[in-house]
Design a protein around this nucleic acid. Sequence first.
DNA 1: CTGTTAGCGCATTCAG
DNA 2: CTGAATGCGCTAACAG
Lengths: 352, 352
Amino acid sequence: MRVSIKDIARTAGVSHSTVSRALNDSSLISDATKDRIKCLADEMGYSPNTLARSLVTRYTNTVGVVVTTITDPFMSEVVQGIQTTADEYDYTVILCSSEETPEREMAAVEMLRSKRVDGVICIASRIGAVYLEHQERIDAPVVIINNHNERMGRYPHTISVDNHHGGYLAARHLVQQGDRRIAYVSGPVAVNHSSSRDRLGGYRQALMEAGIEPEPALVVEGNGCPDGGERAFRHLAALDELPTAVFCYNDMTAMGLMHAAGRTGLSVPEDLAVVGYDDIPLASYLSPPLTTVSQPKAEMGQEAMRMTLSLMSEEGVSEEMSGTSEALVQCRLVTRASTVGRQDKSPRAVGG
Amino acid sequence: MRVSIKDIARTAGVSHSTVSRALNDSSLISDATKDRIKCLADEMGYSPNTLARSLVTRYTNTVGVVVTTITDPFMSEVVQGIQTTADEYDYTVILCSSEETPEREMAAVEMLRSKRVDGVICIASRIGAVYLEHQERIDAPVVIINNHNERMGRYPHTISVDNHHGGYLAARHLVQQGDRRIAYVSGPVAVNHSSSRDRLGGYRQALMEAGIEPEPALVVEGNGCPDGGERAFRHLAALDELPTAVFCYNDMTAMGLMHAAGRTGLSVPEDLAVVGYDDIPLASYLSPPLTTVSQPKAEMGQEAMRMTLSLMSEEGVSEEMSGTSEALVQCRLVTRASTVGRQDKSPRAVGG
DNA sequence: CTGTTAGCGCATTCAG
DNA sequence: CTGAATGCGCTAACAG
């Protein structure tokens, strides 16, 4: 146990650098001794100490991933994608949860810096500015997935979906189904949260194109979670005239909204069509199955990891000369039962 | 950038060991110079190199967590729990996905060993034996959450739920609702998967206590995923007489089953009562909301981390003299609409 | 091809 | 209280 190259050097009767060379498949060594040392190594149960190695090579083959909560289905799918290509390239993932608090997010970055990660990926950062501040300190590239911060202009390395287009797709679909009173339930409206606003923009555009004047009263606030969807439904139900369709910031919101709708006796989609966003794995198992705008979550993770990898290799040579690398991925509409197969799309009052 | 204690020692006009002492709040240093050095340190943007530190202290403040997929809601909740107490104690989590394959699981463990993690937590290992083999090699404690391996007897450090009792609770609840034809949809029946069998055992006991003879035909195979639930439903639907209730291995299975049931025109719970297991966050938002056996997922994660911490500190002194430390946590039944409020519990044929 | 020598950045003796 | 010296395990010149 705890055998080092020095130990195996001793029992092999060679110098420790020879062992190092053997283990690293150096060209400066004879096949004979290389083989001999290699099998001696695993006879002795040798495990290379990556700490020591990293200390000298100055890279750790490690990336830090910062999420708000791993519990969010969207997050975990993205992380999954990151993982996949990470260990394809022999990289290790250190996971941090910020719980949405800036302090914890900062602490996480600081800790990743201390661990000398080669790169950082952070998902849906609400406070991307923090990263900018730290980016000069942490001399590793940081790429942001679904940057929610708009204040600072565009962050150099991001991968994001076209939220405007996604919102457009959702609303246009409803319009095509014959809906004209279409509501939008937003995501978190906290500072620096552009994704919801972008989706709203696409929604508005689709309505306008169809000659429908967007009605401010039909835009209500959610929080990206089921309970927000429930509350939003109550707001809508309090209106004189209920919308015939609702576009929700995300699937979780849609779930909450459908749940609330069901309790008041409305049925989806007959009384109310619902479309979500994300296409979480469970979306197709809801009843009714949820029409939603699908984000390529795993692909986004993979792309982010790939971008990180390439930034890391650049960093070695061109010293931060890499310009901005933005990837914009496309989302697509997945049509399910929550919006189709209706007869009557005329507005109706609650319980009417 | 990339400033070391040596750098700050130079500009402070002291030796690097003095700096080290100051930064570590050693008692062997005057408050004056300590303060001076400390603020100089962060003026210079110093970040301690944990690699170097770990190399000498021989611990990394890092634990490895091995999951099958982070995508599984159960897993992510547990990981969340681990994270919580991990960074409460200033520990860092390295996440690995085994994708259920033994090779990747072994690779993960080997890699964690190389990174010199202080401990390993693995969730729902199907191949715990692998760990046993490696446990002597990886000189860090490994604790297993929901060990699925039974072949090797009881693993020294585990935290698990009382699956038998959970199954009992579920089935007894149905019996109390008046059901007498109660099916069970199992989890993965692959090698070394005891949790499903234990739940089945509890289910059987509940039936027997109620004077119901368990019917083998009512026990069908699932896989822990929605599609398995769908297939299971089809098997049940092919029976002469449909059960009036189904207990599913987990919530995902239940979702699939309810989905399939809905498509054939059956309604839950009127035609078929359904109970799941896990109480994933979305369970209460299904329609109908799912009755389920709740596992304290976050608590299990926290407990696992706590156990790991204590094992790690023991290891320093008593050298693996720590006996077995098993924690058995309790689950509880959460009653929702998928099992209650029915009138007629007599058996009926499909479409009848 | 192989051995010797130097550090990587830090904690930790041991002298002062 | 502080400085000088040593080594954690490893890679990377530099000589042979």
